[in-house]
């Protein structure tokens, strides 16, 4: 057991966990942040995706003991971070997923939205090919990819529209 100092969704948290616990286990079972999903648990599905220093990584394959010092963002952090940055309501990616009905069972959604958020942070108006590539590490078992891609395109279109108007 070691006491870890983690930076999660803008907060500094101290949490005790054994060395063999993954970041996903600490998020879900120590901190109650159950938005990150435990899917395949071996790096295939992307349901456990979190942002580490702004880039998507898989928390099921990342040891909590090796996650100190990085800024970790989970799905629970998207709305507060958006508000902190001066926005209103949910993150535009979350809003677009909601309006496009970009979910069926919803299990892949947190990972999908975080991968999409990272893409939008990196690139102002990515193409559909770039969207597909950025989301290619996230599987949707309901195969609802069409609405998911539409949602990311909607978030991009509204951002581009807001800038141009």
């Amino acid at each position: 057991m070691r006491v870890l100092e983690l930076k999660i969704n803008g907060d500094r948290v101290e949490v005790a966990a054994p060395d063999h616990w993954t970041l996903l286990e600490v998020l879900r079972y120590r901190l109650g942040l159950t938005g990150s999903k435990q899917g395949c648990d071996k790096g295939d599905c992307g349901a456990c995706t979190v942002l580490v220093d702004g880039k998507p990584e898989l928390s099921c394959l990342k040891l909590a003991a090796l996650s100190e010092g990085a800024e970790i963002t989970t799905i629970e952090g998207l709305l507060p971070l958006h508000l902190q940055a001066g926005g209103t309501g949910p993150d535009p990616v979350q809003d677009a997923f909601d309006r496009c009905g970009a979910l069926q069972c919803g299990f892949c959604q947190p990972g999908m939205m975080l991968s999409a958020r990272a893409l939008l942070n990196e690139c102002h108006s990515p193409s559909q090919a770039e969207i597909k590539k950025a989301l290619s590490g996230n599987l949707c078992r309901c195969t609802g990819y069409t609405q998911i891609i539409e949602a990311v395109e909607l978030a991009i279109a509204e951002r581009v529209g807001a800038k141009n108007s």
Partner: peptide, 9 residues
């Protein structure tokens, strides 16, 4: 190699 998350890690 693999997907975007795994290439970053």
């Amino acid at each position: 190699v693999a997907g975007p998350q795994l290439r970053r890690m």
